[in-house]
Nucleic acid binder design. Structure first.
Length: 122
DNA sequence: AAGATGACTAACT
DNA sequence: AAGTTAGCCATCT
């Protein structure tokens, strides 16, 4: 058969992108995740850059909450004065995400915390 | 075709 | 606190 390395499941790039998109789709409204975390949840630890790439290449017809992905410092990875940066911030603030000096409290706005709120109340 | 680039990050100065 | 380095690796020049 064609597989040169039996037993080793080598995921295609399309597969990796698809897994990344699925994770991003699962980020609840009002929450954020950083690139590295999305990568880990997609089974791709250490490949944060791939997440940015996957988002940039997401199909037009697949609406993704791309704005809910920020960097590990809790900052938007676009320049604050750029069109994209401002759009991302506006989208996040519209769902209740709070910035303090351009920084989001990743702990506070994590999906994990959202679950806790559902279980235990605010 | 080799080198630069980047929606990244953790670990170092 | 802020800048550098090494790892990441598909894409773009």
């Amino acid at each position: 058969m064609a597989n040169a390395s039996p037993g080793v499941e080598e995921s295609s790039q399309e597969e990796r992108f698809r897994r990344i998109w699925e994770v991003v789709e699962g980020i609840p409204e009002g929450c954020v995740l950083n690139y590295g975390e999305v990568a880990r949840l997609a089974g791709l630890p250490g490949r944060a850059r791939l997440v940015g790439r996957a988002l940039a290449r997401a199909p037009r017809n697949r609406p993704l909450p791309w704005h809910r992905v920020v960097n590990a410092q809790g900052r938007i990875s676009f320049a604050a004065d750029s069109v994209r940066g401002q759009r991302q911030r506006r989208l996040l603030e519209a769902e209740g995400v709070v910035f303090r000096d351009d920084v989001i409290d990743l702990e506070r706005f994590s999906p994990e915390q959202a679950i806790d709120r559902l279980l235990w109340g605010p």
